[in-house]
Simulated assay, not measured.
Amino acid sequence: MVTRSLAAAADGLVVVLLTAGVYLALVAARFVWFPLAFTWPRPTTPVTVVVAGLIATVYLTVAWATTGRTYGAGLLGVRVLGRRGGPLGWARATLRALACIFFPVGLLWCAISPTRRSVQDLLLGSVVIYELHPDPGVRVTGGSRDPGAGPGT
Rank of each mutant, 00 (worst) to 15 (best):
R96H: 15
T115C: 05
S113M: 06
G53W: 01
G74L: 06
L26D: 11
E131D: 15
R117E: 14
V105D: 01
R116I: 00
F31G: 08
R30F: 07
C100Q: 07
S118C: 15
E131W: 01
R116C: 02
A56C: 04
W90A: 14
P136Q: 07
V15C: 10
L108P: 00
D135I: 08
P147W: 08
V80W: 02
L76C: 07
V32D: 12
V14I: 15
L75K: 03
L98P: 01
A37V: 12
P41A: 12
V62A: 15
W40T: 14
A63M: 12
A97K: 04
A93N: 03
W33I: 12
I129T: 13
G89M: 08
P104Y: 04
A99E: 00
G137F: 05
W90S: 07
T61C: 09
V138Q: 14
F102H: 09
T115L: 12
T45I: 12
R83A: 14
P134G: 07
R79A: 11
L108W: 08
T48W: 11
A63C: 15
G142E: 09
D135F: 06
V22E: 08
G137E: 13
L108D: 05
T66R: 14
L81G: 05
G125Q: 09
R83H: 09
T141K: 07
H133K: 11
L13V: 15
P134Y: 13
S144H: 11
L26Y: 05
A65I: 03
L17T: 06
G77L: 08
A149C: 05
R145H: 07
V62W: 13
L88E: 02
F38D: 09
A149Y: 02
R30Q: 15
L124P: 00
V58K: 01
E131M: 05
V140M: 10
R84F: 08
V15Q: 04
V105N: 00
L36S: 13
D121E: 08
G106Y: 04
R96L: 06
V138K: 10
L122I: 10
T19Y: 05
S126K: 02
V62T: 03
W33N: 10
L107K: 00
T66Q: 10
V128R: 02
R83Q: 11
V22K: 02
S113D: 15
T70L: 11
G82E: 06
V27T: 13
S113R: 06
T70A: 10
G143S: 12
V138Y: 10
P136Y: 04
V140L: 12
V14F: 03
C110M: 15
R79V: 09
R96D: 07
P134A: 14
V62G: 02
W90C: 04
S144D: 07
D121N: 06
I101Y: 06
I55N: 01
S118N: 02
R69G: 03
T57P: 00
V49A: 14
L95D: 00
V127C: 10
A93G: 13
V51G: 01
G53N: 06
V32W: 14
R79I: 04
T39N: 09
P104K: 05
R42V: 12
A29T: 06
A93Y: 03
G86V: 03
P46W: 01
R117Q: 15
V15F: 06
W64V: 01
L88H: 00
L95N: 01
L54T: 03
L122T: 05
R117D: 11
P35F: 13
D121R: 02
R116G: 00
H133G: 04
